[in-house]
Computed example of a mutant assay.
Amino acid sequence: MVVGGSRGLGLGVAGAARAAGARVTVVARGISPADGVPGDATDELFAAKVLAEHRPDLLVITAGAAPEMLPLTGHTWESFSANWHSDVRIAFTWLRAALTLPLAPGSRVVVFGSAAELRGSPLSGGYAGAKATVRLIAGYAAGEARDLGITVTTVLPGITPGTGVGETAIRAYAKASKISRDEFTGRLTAAATPESTGRDILALTGTDPAYLIDADGWRPLPAA
């Protein structure tokens, strides 16, 4: 099951899973019932209902909002905090639902954070901090999940061209650097793609709490 699997990195994960022969359920706000399960990923009752009906053995949570790219003085509190109300709430909602149900022993939950939390992202408001909190919540869930036989992992991709969030960041930082979008993208030599990220998620077998994902695949995030 891919929450947010109709576009971006989530679409890459769903495509890789289908190519590997898995039965995939995509959960997304605007998806048609013929293609997945439509609904609001921040809705706790919806998350609990969907997990109870489908009981996935791999739950991947990629849904979130593309941040508004502005300097701090250009943000309002509403725009600055947008990812706290979407990304953080979605992670909390689905992790809580997965553990409350609970999913079957041997299941894995993968939550998408962002490498922005490690380097900062001064034009994206509260995005980097929200993603850091996503990793904290996933870490809390991982401790509770262990006794249930469930693995909870956070993955931290960098800026990914070809995705909504990635292209939003690329255009903003290219403009701030006074270079073209293509020149900025050319500097992202370690950037993964949605397709390679999808394959990496399927290949993820470790039990470390967090992994960085780039063009070379995944590797455990060093302890703080």
Rank of each mutant, 00 (worst) to 15 (best):
G106W: 07
A116D: 08
S107H: 05
V50N: 00
G64C: 13
V111Y: 00
T100Y: 05
A97D: 02
L101G: 02
G126E: 10
L99G: 02
T93A: 12
S79E: 03
S81K: 00
L118P: 00
L118I: 08
E53I: 01
G125S: 08
P67W: 02
L59V: 14
P102R: 02
A115S: 15
R89T: 13
T73P: 07
A48T: 14
V37H: 01
L72D: 10
S114L: 13
M69H: 09
A115W: 03
P102N: 11
V60Y: 03
W94N: 00
G36I: 06
N83L: 07
G125E: 10
H54M: 10
V111E: 01
S107M: 12
G36T: 06
L59E: 00
G126H: 11
T62N: 13
G74P: 13
L95I: 13
W77E: 14
T76V: 11
A98L: 11
A115V: 05
D43M: 09
R96D: 07
L45K: 10
W77S: 15
I90Y: 01
L59F: 03
G106A: 10
G126R: 09
S86Q: 01
F112I: 15
L99C: 04
S81R: 05
D35Q: 15
G129W: 07
N83I: 04
V109S: 06
V88C: 09
E53W: 00
F92C: 03
R55W: 05
E53R: 15
V109M: 15
F112H: 09
H54K: 15
E53G: 08
A47I: 08
W77R: 14
T100H: 14
G36W: 06
V37P: 00
D57A: 14
D87I: 02
A41P: 07
S107I: 13
G106F: 10
P71Q: 04
V110E: 02
A115C: 08
T100V: 09
P105N: 09
A65Q: 12
P105T: 02
L123V: 06
T93Q: 12
V109A: 15
F46G: 05
R89V: 12
A115N: 11
L99W: 04
L118Y: 08
L95C: 15
A82R: 11
V60L: 09
N83R: 04
A116W: 03
V50W: 01
P38Y: 10
E117L: 11
G113D: 05
V111S: 04
T62H: 01
A34C: 10
Y127Q: 03
V60D: 01
L95T: 01
R108P: 01
S124K: 08
Y127W: 04
S81E: 01
S81C: 08
Y127K: 00
G36A: 10
G106S: 07
D87R: 02
A104M: 12
V109I: 15
D57V: 14
D87A: 14
H75Y: 12
S107D: 12
T93S: 13
V88R: 03
R89A: 10
T76K: 13
A128V: 06
L72E: 11
P122G: 11
L45Q: 14
T76Y: 13
A104Q: 15
P67F: 02
A47T: 05
L51M: 09
A128M: 07
P71I: 04
V110L: 01
L103V: 05
P102A: 12
E53F: 01
L70I: 00
V109P: 13
V88D: 00
A48R: 15
D87V: 02
L58Q: 06
V110G: 08
D40S: 04
